[in-house]
Design a protein around this nucleic acid. Structure first.
Lengths: 193, 193
DNA sequence: ATATTTTTGGAACGTTCATTTCAATAAGAT
DNA sequence: ATCTTATTGAAATGAACGTTCCAAAAATAT
């Protein structure tokens, strides 16, 4: 059969993510996306149906990138508490790397769109659930190895860490000093040991 | 002299805050504000100059309300650590009370607009500074009274608590179960004692 | 080469946006 | 009563919004 998709979808999503991450959903216009991707308006609608759907694909790609990087980081961890530290360090690096100080795209999306768009709220709930599950697993193993104290259950510590991660990302929007950020991480970890 | 301002500015701001808090800045239209305030378009522009300026006034009023409530709560505190707990409890009540689960208007604004609008970024920096200063003062006193441990400096703990507060507000957008939320607060406090 | 299907370009769709304009109305001050 | 200023109503501004449309171009399969 004939002409197959010619543009690089991965690249297009990467460019779209940059805009959405910077401006959020509502402040991003279709023209912004046309400019950023280099695609024609029609091509965007042909391939992504709507602005919201393109945003959803960006969210998924953004999440997938973090899942990949988290998995990579977990392999380097000596033990569960070290794994948790490396996860925070991953975000710390992201904060410092981002020269526009945009925070986390998923956290920003939660703040902007949660409880307004069904698809988005569902994505956010799934993201939350899997993040907490990962953390709970790490805490559970950490307690088995007596590296993490037993003052709270894995479920409680997981929720605490999830909440701390979000706060960390929010803080990183206005505070980008490595020392200050690392101090937050250390204080969070101090709770567990 | 002649006709003095006739509408209730406090009420108008309260109504505008409801909309901005719910939808954020960009998703709120001038028509939304006309509908919510009951004011005429022209009257809004007469009194507030622009959408952005009205939003700034809303932010200030919203912040002032929290400063008032925080001051009230601090009077009830037996000691500095109790004061910190009461501040978290204040937010906990807000989270549970809000039937639309909108999170904190200032945190949302940070996520949506920080590092884009100068006036907003300035407001957010001031808000951050005063919040951290309050927390640092409480931690400092708590350490003097040996209610808070000396593992970290007041400045470090203040930043940690500030970050935790933001995370708490973000978490409260999707998790509104009192038990879970209270568990986060207790875990944060456990770090200090 | 021809048939088939996708991607393009670019204009156009109808709405909605924030903001302005201006004459009419209202009300305290003189 | 009259002057002065604020508020109102309603329409109009022009730009920008997300989305659609369609003919032209491109590219694979036959």
């Amino acid at each position: 059969m004939p002409k197959v998709e010619t543009f690089n979808k991965e690249f297009v999503l990467k460019q779209a993510i940059e805009v959405f991450h910077d401006k959020g959903y509502n402040a991003t216009s279709m023209q912004d996306l046309v400019d950023a991707t280099g695609l024609n308006r029609s091509s965007i609608y042909n391939s992504f149906d709507s602005k919201l759907n393109l945003f959803m694909e960006c969210l998924n790609a953004y999440q997938a990138k973090y899942i990949r990087e988290t998995s990579k980081v977990l392999l380097k961890a000596n033990n569960p508490i070290h794994a948790i530290e490396l996860i925070f360090d991953l975000y710390l690096k992201e904060i410092i790397k981002d020269k526009f100080d945009r925070g986390c795209m998923i956290t920003n999306c939660k703040s902007e769109m949660a409880n307004h768009e069904g698809l988005i709220t569902n994505f956010l709930n799934m993201n939350q659930q899997s993040t907490i599950a990962l953390l709970e697993d790490l805490v559970s193993k950490g307690q088995e190895e007596t590296l993490i104290n037993n003052k709270r259950t894995p479920s409680e510590y997981a929720l605490y860490l999830y909440s701390s991660l979000q706060g960390f990302r929010m803080t990183g929007i206005l505070i980008t000093d490595r020392t200050h950020l690392k101090s937050i991480v250390n204080t969070v970890l101090q709770t567990l040991i």
